[in-house]
């Protein structure tokens, strides 16, 4: 297989496989997790939970008092790389082109230079977080193979995408194919690792928020 056949494969059969596994795995896992159900809370609520679950979904995105100081890299790095990924994926012109292609929806993107900057910042933040994972005792203690693996799987699409655009190291075609392949690996891995938090995060925050709201505590 030459580099061009490689590209043809990743944008055709490879993409089919990756998207298929991603969708299958995601729907499966969501069922598997949320069909376990939970008991009804019989205690009289202090107040109705209402939209508290939703409030927590948003509130938890802010650092609690004092925590920023205790783990600055987690928060600042976390913000930069999560927002960075969102900016690259949703505001990068080639990605908007891709989304338009798949869904017909389109919106204006950011100039390539800004996306390039966001990419570099995202990679820097991810590297800082990797160093933090090695340095911070609690993080290092919790880390398993999965943590290093998922870091790499998330980092590679950013790196290869950036290298493809900058025409670094390998011919564009190969880099582009590697970029698409790395995204496909990410898609395949996502439902079965901690990366699945992109979905369950909302459920978790919701559960925590609504259960505690019944007690009258905004969490």
């Amino acid at each position: 297989m030459n580099e061009l056949q490689f590209l043809t494969w990743v944008r055709g059969p490879g993409l089919d496989i990756a998207v298929g596994i991603f969708l299958l795995g995601t729907v499966w896992r969501l069922f598997e997790i949320y069909t376990l159900g939970r008991g009804k809370d019989l205690a009289a609520p202090r107040r109705a939970a209402g939209a508290s679950g939703l409030h927590t979904v948003f509130r938890r995105s802010l650092p609690p008092p004092g925590m920023l100081k205790r783990s600055p890299v987690s928060y600042i790095g976390g913000y930069i790389f999560h927002i960075g990924l969102a900016v690259i994926v949703f505001l990068g012109a080639p990605h908007i082109m891709l989304i338009a292609n798949l869904t017909g929806l389109s919106w204006p993107g950011l100039p390539a230079q800004i996306i390039g900057l966001a990419t570099v910042m995202t990679m820097a933040a991810m590297l800082a977080m990797l160093v933090d994972r090695i340095n911070k005792p609690a993080k290092r203690f919790l880390s398993t193979f999965e943590d290093w693996f998922t870091w790499a799987v998330t980092f590679l699409p950013v790196l290869t995408g950036w290298m493809a655009v900058q025409h670094l190291l390998l011919p564009y075609t190969t880099m582009l194919a590697l970029h698409i392949l790395s995204v496909e690996i990410l898609l395949i891995v996502l439902p079965f690792t901690k990366l699945f938090h992109v979905f369950t995060l909302f459920g978790s925050r919701w559960y925590n928020g609504s259960a505690n709201a019944r007690k009258g505590v905004p969490v």
């Binding site: 043809t8 089919d16 969708l23 729907v27 376990l36 798949l102």
Partner: peptide
């Protein structure tokens, strides 16, 4: 060429299969 060659073929079948398998796993759980 950087775009998908065709719309992913599995967008309907995969979620349906996932939902079926997931529901079965849910029942078993």
């Amino acid at each position: 060429l950087s775009m998908p060659a065709h719309p992913p073929t599995s967008v309907v079948a995969a979620p349906v299969a996932g939902a079926t398998a997931g529901a079965a796993a849910g029942f078993a759980n």
